[in-house]
Simulated scan of single mutants.
Amino acid sequence: MGGNAFGPWVAAIGALVRQGRARGWVTIDEVNAALAAPDVSAELIEDLLEALADLNIEIADESEAPVLRGPFPDRLAREIGRLVRWGQERGYVTRAELLAAMPPDQVEEARFNETVATLLGMGIRVVEG
């Protein structure tokens, strides 16, 4: 078997750390996804959680993730959460999706721009169309 057996983990953990640094937190589900393998030990998970804490990256429950909680009403928080999940799956969100999740009549421009910056910091591009 060629290549580095740890390659996928290294890439996934690197992405997790970049995402955590950009927004200050990661969810436990994201940690589990980064370490997705049947033979991951509890010790490895604990070591990663400690490393994230050392980097001042909070571990948040999916239902309490700070960017999803935010200062938004429940409906907007759900829409932004869905947008983040789509972006994490695809690597991008469209401007139309972002505007639908954060209607200009309900969200201040500064908050909209902060959300775009957060998405970019998470490695999620905002594209036209």
Rank of each mutant, 00 (worst) to 15 (best):
L16T: 06
A5L: 13
V10H: 14
Q106H: 11
I57L: 10
R111Y: 06
A96N: 07
R95W: 06
A65F: 03
A11V: 11
V116M: 04
A33L: 13
V84K: 00
F112V: 05
A110M: 10
E89C: 01
G87R: 02
L48I: 03
V126A: 01
V10M: 10
P38V: 15
A22M: 11
D105T: 13
D47S: 12
R95E: 10
A33F: 07
E62N: 13
A65R: 09
G87Q: 01
N113G: 04
R111S: 12
A33K: 10
R23L: 07
E114K: 10
Q19W: 11
V127K: 12
R18C: 12
L83C: 01
Y92L: 01
D74Q: 12
A51L: 13
V93Y: 01
D105G: 09
R95V: 09
G91L: 00
E97D: 05
E128T: 09
A101K: 02
P71C: 06
N4H: 15
L44I: 07
W86G: 11
T118L: 09
G2Q: 12
E64H: 09
E30G: 04
P104M: 06
V84N: 00
F72L: 15
A22I: 04
Y92V: 01
S63I: 14
E43G: 08
A101L: 03
Y92H: 02
L76N: 04
S41T: 09
A37P: 11
E128H: 07
R125V: 02
E62G: 05
L68F: 04
L35A: 05
I57V: 10
M1R: 12
A96G: 04
W86E: 05
V31F: 00
A33D: 15
R75L: 09
R23M: 05
M102V: 07
A96H: 07
V107K: 09
R78S: 08
I124K: 03
R90F: 02
D39S: 10
A117V: 08
G91A: 03
R125A: 05
S41F: 07
V93L: 02
A53I: 15
A11S: 14
A60F: 04
P8E: 15
V84H: 02
